[in-house]
């Protein structure tokens, strides 16, 4: 019973949403909308749960003494932003926090990708097989072809770039997306028909 009820609820909701996808009818749409709102509410509660887990994890680290400084910074930043967001929504303080704390932090984190990409490339560009050759030549060419100097080298370079993106790259992407879509359908059917229930 402990398993049957959640699985039953999941199957029922899934099938309702499936019908809602295929059938454009006011009543079905309304039921679908209610379920969808339920998903949003559940996600919000899950976020609250996640927040509590994060708080407890770092409170424990603070107490235990493993990297307490970092945990302290996290807790102060989290609670401070939360307080400003709840008490002063849309205020200048919140905008200041976004502009001078969050925005630069995010940009810095993303900028690290340029560094990490180089160290990954160092390993991936070793020409030990055909794949590595294809990877290296296509990467260097496509990167170069997007630069303004590409057109200066030859007018055919941008044309070659457009052809590469429009034909082989798109074909490969479509193939992968079709396969992934089949996998998605199969996984969804397994859950809808209660063949599999990875959530419990």
């Amino acid at each position: 019973m402990k398993r049957i009820v959640p699985i039953g609820v999941a199957v029922l909701c899934g099938l309702t949403m499936l019908v809602d996808f295929f059938v454009a009818h006011p009543l079905v749409d309304r039921i679908g909308a209610i379920l969808v709102e339920g998903v949003t509410i559940l996600a919000a509660f899950a976020l609250l749960l996640g927040l509590l887990v994060l708080l407890s994890t770092h409170a424990r680290k603070l107490k235990r003494g493993s990297q307490p400084g970092l945990s302290l910074i996290l807790l102060i930043a989290l609670l401070g932003t939360l307080a400003v967001g709840v008490l002063l929504p849309g205020s200048a303080t919140l905008t200041w926090l976004f502009d001078y704390v969050y925005y630069p932090l995010q940009s810095t984190m993303a900028a690290l990708l340029a560094f990490f990409a180089i160290s990954a490339v160092y390993r991936a560009f070793k020409l030990r097989n055909v794949h590595a050759w294809v990877l290296m030549i296509s990467s260097l060419f496509l990167f170069m072809a997007q630069l303004p100097l590409a057109a200066a080298i030859s007018p055919y370079v941008p044309m070659a770039r457009d052809w590469l993106i429009a034909v082989p790259v798109t074909a490969g992407m479509r193939g992968i997306l079709l396969g992934a879509a089949l996998g998605t359908v199969a996984t969804a059917l397994r859950i809808l028909l209660a063949v599999d229930h990875p959530y419990a």
Partner: peptide, 23 residues
């Protein structure tokens, strides 16, 4: 910042050469 893209491409080419020589 566009100039940085060109310089980064140069670094990529350099890395491709160096990694294979080292290998």
């Amino acid at each position: 910042q566009g100039d940085a893209y060109v310089a980064y491409w140069g670094v990529l080419v350099l890395v491709a050469i160096v990694t294979n020589i080292a290998w």
